[in-house]
Structure formats: structure tokens, C-alpha cells
Amino acid sequence: MRKHRIGQILYIIVCFTFFYLPILVTMIYSFNSSKSLTKFESFSLRWYENLFTSHDIMYAVWVSVSIAFLATIVSTILGTLTSIGLSKNRKILKEIIINVNNVPIMNPDIVTAIGLMILFSSIHMEKGYLTMLLAHIVFCTPYVITSVYPKVRGLDPNLANAAMDLGATPFQALTKVILPMLKEGIYAGVLLAFTMSFDDFVISYFVTGNGVSNISIIVYNMTKRTNPTINALSTIVILVIAITLILVNVIPNVAKRRKEHKSVT
């Protein structure tokens, strides 16, 4: 039994090395003073300086963050309202919406991307920030719906009635009872939408224009030559995402434990 375990643990370590080694190397070499990817000469923040003084990269960071932010807000609202409305809808409409909703999830990104590209050019919409934002809402909303809708289905259908019975208008019932009940699903949707948007390359790449680039597009265009500035950018992005994820996973547990602790005492 023991021996078994050691083999398993070794295998898990190898797999994790496979996942994390490249990321780790990127991070380490972002602090290298030379341009080399093999020889670590000395510690320096040279590439970080480069990064923060590069107008293009800083603009791309702003595009990525602001689009992720706006797309998340819009798709969370749209997706949540749709999920709530969906649960009591006629069966046919419900199935059509759910199936259409699955299209952007199941379709390869590249097909979604060219579809939008053709759509925007057909209606002579100038490609740039706005087209990118619309495209991001397109692929983020389905993820919000897939995380919120199951929660809506799990709701006691009488909860809204109970609130209205006690004098709440339908709007008050929505904000005071239904939305708090869906909190977990909505948070999951927000997290998914934000990271999906922030990470996107394929769709952004096809629908943008006029010099509007996000982080992914900048990286794609700079990889023609090795460029340690990208390492610096990667390091920051990876750290931000990793820390967010860890916090998201740890905070609810800590809060829960604290609450349980409190209710015991």
C-alpha cells in the first residue's frame, strides 16, 4: 500500500512539474538582467521597467482590464436576468434558448470569431474597442447562464410568492430574496466571465482593429522574437490570476469556518 502511494505521488509531482515548470521559468527569467533565456546573469527589474514604460503594452493592459470589467458587468446582468426568466418559461422557448446559449460554448472560438467578424463588417461597424466589447459579451454571457441557471432551478418556486405575500413588489422580491439566493451561482459566473474575457485571444484577434489590442494580441505579435518584457508581463498576469483564484477558493472556506465557529460559541 505504502509503495503504491509513493509511485502515485511521484506521478503527481511529474504532472505538476509539466504544468508549472514553464510558468516558473518565465517568472524567473523575467528578473534576468540579460536577454538570454538560458543564462541567468543577475537579478534586475529591467524588463519590468520596460514593461511599465511601454505605451503599447500599458494600453493593451488597460484594454484587457476595462473590457473584462465591462463585459463581466453586462454579461452578469444579462445572464442572471435571463436565467431567472427562463425557469418558468414555456418548454419550447426554454429549450431553444438553452441550445442557442450552448453555441458559443461548444463552437470552436475561431468559428465564433469569424462569424462576428463577418457580422461586424456586414453592418459596416468599425472594428475596434466596441466590437471587441460586444464580442466578449457574446461569449461571456453563456458562461454566466450555465452557472446561474442550475441555481434558479434549485430554488423553491414559492420563495418569490412568499416575499410578495409579505408585501414585497416583484422587484423587491427579486432584489431582496431571489438574487441573494443565487449569490453563489452569480459569483461563479462573474469569475468565469472575467477570466474568460481577460484570457481571450482568438475572438479578440479577429474582431479588433484600428490598433486596439489586448494583452493576448500584444503577446502574439511580440513572440516573433523572444522578448523578456513578455516574461515580466506574464509574471504579473499569472500572479494576479493565481492570487485571485486562491483567494476565491480560500475566503469562502475561512468565512464559513468562522461563521460555524461563531454559531457554536
Binding site: 423553491d156 414559492n158 412568499a162 410578495m164 409579505l166 441573494p180
Partner: peptide, 16 residues
């Protein structure tokens, strides 16, 4: 319902 002077106790209570 929110304008009626009646209140309901639900079958499965439907507490918040």
C-alpha cells in the same frame, strides 16, 4: 398579492 391583507404559511414553509 403584495397589496392584499392576507398572509400565507406555505406547505414547505418557504423561509428565506
Amino acid at each position: 398579492p403584495y397589496k392584499r391583507e392576507v398572509n400565507t404559511v406555505f406547505q414547505k414553509y418557504s423561509l428565506f
